[in-house]
Amino acid sequence: MLGALALVITAGVLVWNHVGRSGPPIVQRCIASADAETAAALDPEQAGNAALIAAITTERGLPARALTIALATAMQESKIRNIDYGDRDSLGIFQQRPSQGWGTEEQVQDPHYATNAFYDALVQVDGYQDMEITVAAQEVQRSGFPDAYAQHETLARLFASGLTGYSEASVVCRLGAATEVERAEMPEAVQERLALDLPSLAAEQEEHDGATHLRIDVTPLGGAEPGRSAWAVASWAVMTAELTGVSEVSVAGQQWDRADGANAAWQPVPEDHPAAGDPVGTVRIG
């Protein structure tokens, strides 16, 4: 298996902020925090993959503990990147080996296939929810470095808590502004990604003040309380924003605005915003 060091707080990509004003460059990153002193960060590529893994966790109705194990594993194996190399024939996010029955080379480099394959194995581990993360991960991976998963536990817990909706408003991304082309293509890009990551859901397209918004009702997910599911979906939308061109996400009276750049944080929705009247269980993307 391919070892990897955690990227905590410093992970990111340096880009220029073009939000209609001059300013310092932005280190593009997504941050999950528990408090002012406990936080971890991923760059946009890592964040997009982490969001995908989280969405599959939600779709399958698995607990947040499963996501913590999956993220710690992916961080150790590939830095949560879909790589096309590794130890011996290991490939993909989880460095799965075709020769060991994980699938074909093409399959294990498909993040959706790889994540489901990981979870198919994890759920067969009796009592995995009560195991230490290193033990549960090793039961699935059979790594030559079984204790290495522990170094990513804090990062994995922080992102898992936010991406499953247990920690509201704990996940935020700080990105450069979307281009005009990205904004124009956003509705289609989000719906395509939604169909792959969260196929139980559909986005209804609406127009407001000349801008397109997508409105998502999360109740088809079932299981969790709608409010928690909504935060899980909203966090997914923020974590994939650099890939889909999303500029704002609103949920439960709170809004993330990409235009805030390096200062982006969850803030109250403006009173005149269409999301202000949305019911519980609704996520609005613009």
Rank of each mutant, 00 (worst) to 15 (best):
D110N: 13
L163K: 02
N49R: 02
T154H: 07
E153Q: 14
R65L: 04
A156R: 00
Y113P: 01
D126A: 14
A66C: 05
A156Q: 02
A156K: 01
Q129L: 14
S143L: 11
S167M: 11
R142W: 08
V108W: 15
N116E: 15
R81G: 00
Q109L: 12
G165C: 06
E77N: 01
Q124K: 15
D110V: 07
G86E: 14
T68E: 15
L163N: 01
L62K: 10
F159C: 02
Q46I: 03
F159T: 02
G162E: 02
T154E: 14
A64D: 09
C173Q: 00
L122K: 02
R142I: 14
L71V: 05
D126L: 08
R88C: 09
S167W: 08
A156S: 06
Q138H: 09
Y85N: 04
V140S: 13
D147Y: 11
N49L: 06
R65A: 06
F159N: 02
A160T: 05
V140T: 06
L91Q: 04
A150C: 13
V181H: 15
P63D: 14
A55R: 00
L175E: 03
Q46W: 01
A117P: 02
I133S: 07
I69N: 09
D89H: 05
R65Q: 13
W102Q: 08
Q100V: 10
Y149P: 05
T134S: 12
Q141P: 05
Y113W: 15
V108L: 07
E132D: 13
T58W: 08
T164L: 11
Y119A: 03
Y85G: 05
R142D: 10
F145H: 14
N49Q: 10
E180H: 12
E59L: 08
E105L: 05
T179V: 06
L91E: 05
L42S: 01
S161K: 14
E105K: 14
V123D: 12
Y166P: 04
G176V: 03
R183P: 03
E182N: 05
Q107L: 11
M131R: 11
D87E: 12
A178V: 10
